Amino acid sequence: MRVLKGALLFLVVCILGGCWDRMEINDLAFVTGTALDVQEDGSLFCTLQIAIPGSKEGSGGGGKGDSGSFYLISAKGNNGNEIHQALQKKSSRQLFYSHRSVVFISERLARQGINKALLDVFTHDPRNRLKTYMMIVKGGDARQILELNYPLKQVPLEVVNEMQRTGDEVAVTLRDFFIANQSEGIQPVVGVLELGDHLTDKKEQIFKAEGTGILKDLKLIGLLDEKETLSLMWLMNNLKYGRISTPLPEDQGKIGIMLNHTTSKIVTHADKNAVRFNVMLEGTGTVEENNSSLDVSDSAQMAMIKQAVENSVRKQVEQLLLKLQKKYKADSVGFGQEVYKSNPGKWKTLKKEWDAQFQNASITVDVDLTVNGAGMVHSTLQHE
């Protein structure tokens, strides 16, 4: 009985005493964004954007020491632990990364290789949030993104909101990147941002999405533009929405289509010495702009529009595949992964030489679209 009473008393003391190792919110510095650059001597330069306690979200930027909703601290080093230690010494509060939205990586660092910047720093430390997005900053330094005096909210939050809203931009989290990097038969891709055109005027400082970064062996080897990014996302079955502008044959004008539903399927055909692929793209879209003499309410003319759009999409996708195969030599879509899934035995024989096999693989593309023409205006205003 005495033992039981003693145990109960100890339990009561522990409960009333609270958690001895808890961290008070007033002792934390909430990191909202990270920028990684590389110095001339090859060392890493890391910049953190930290929310100012009690500031109103969207009250303005605080880059370069300006008053606002955040402030920046920076440090350089040769590895993650060294940088984190230097950053922590610059903060009177414990750095807390669970609210971080985006990790920005400069194009220069990405082209040199991001393995030392990411794999060790972000995989072994449990304080890092794997749902954090990662983006490559085209040209300039990544820290310039965090320094922007953006007129709305903090830049990292706006980047995430933009990627989640549009549905036609590559949105890759740390978790997505690590899975792709460790998976069979696919190379990871990363979204790309670029600084705006008015960096000298603080009231007009902006950023814009600028396509996709193609990586191979954890090094950036090329960039895709917006049209190529749309094709890539469609191939990977990740496209939610998209806009296509299609020229009609015989100089009849152009048609603008808004895609609101797309699917992709890759069928693998294994031969003795190689593999062939058939890509089947399907989608549903609506005519949003008709700069031609065609009447979208006429079924025969809508059939012409449908065929023209399908041919345009097929040509655009084939050009992207040719670029991936011959120029970048990177299987960013995951054709090798399809071989691995459908025929693991065949993949074992192809895995070591997949780079060469992918460059010469036969890939055919079929497109089947459902195009709706009904809208506020059934045909062009110029139609008579």
Rank of each mutant, 00 (worst) to 15 (best):
M1F: 02
K5F: 09
K5L: 11
L8R: 02
L11H: 08
V12M: 12
I15G: 04
L16N: 07
W20C: 00
R22N: 13
M23L: 15
E24T: 04
N26F: 11
L28R: 13
A29F: 10
V31D: 07
V31S: 07
T32F: 08
T32A: 14
Q39R: 15
E40L: 13
D41F: 04
D41S: 05
F45D: 13
Q49K: 11
I52D: 15
G58R: 03
G61W: 04
G61I: 04
K64T: 07
G65P: 07
D66W: 12
S67F: 13
S69G: 15
S74W: 00
A75F: 06
E82T: 02
I83C: 06
H84R: 15
A86L: 02
Q88L: 08
S92Q: 13
Q94E: 09
F96D: 03
I105V: 12
S106F: 01
E107L: 02
L118G: 03
L119I: 10
F122R: 00
T123F: 02
R129D: 13
R129F: 08
T132C: 05
M135S: 11
G139F: 09
A142C: 09
L148M: 08
L148K: 05
Y150I: 05
K153P: 06
M163A: 15
M163F: 13
G167T: 03
L174K: 02
Q182R: 10
E184A: 07
I186Y: 01
Q187T: 06
P188E: 01
V189I: 10
V190R: 00
V192D: 00
L193R: 01
E194K: 14
E194T: 13
L199R: 06
A209P: 00
E210I: 07
I214G: 02
K216R: 14
K219R: 15
D225W: 01
D225G: 06
E226I: 13
K227N: 14
L235H: 07
L239N: 04
P247M: 05
Q252A: 11
G253M: 00
K254C: 08
I255T: 03
M258G: 01
M258P: 00
T263E: 14
K265D: 15
A270F: 08
D271Y: 15
V275C: 01
R276F: 02
R276T: 04
F277M: 09
M280N: 12
G285F: 05
S297A: 10
S297N: 10
A300H: 09
Q301N: 09
M302V: 06
N311E: 12
V313C: 08
Q316M: 09
Q316N: 13
V317P: 00
V317Q: 01
V317S: 00
Q325Y: 11
Q325M: 12
K326H: 14
Y328W: 10
A330Q: 03
Q337S: 11
K348S: 15
L350R: 00
K351G: 05
K352Q: 14
K352I: 10
W354M: 08
D355P: 11
F358L: 07
Q359C: 08
Q359M: 10
I363N: 03
T364C: 12
D368P: 04
V371G: 01
G373H: 09
G373P: 04
S379E: 15
H383S: 14
H383L: 15
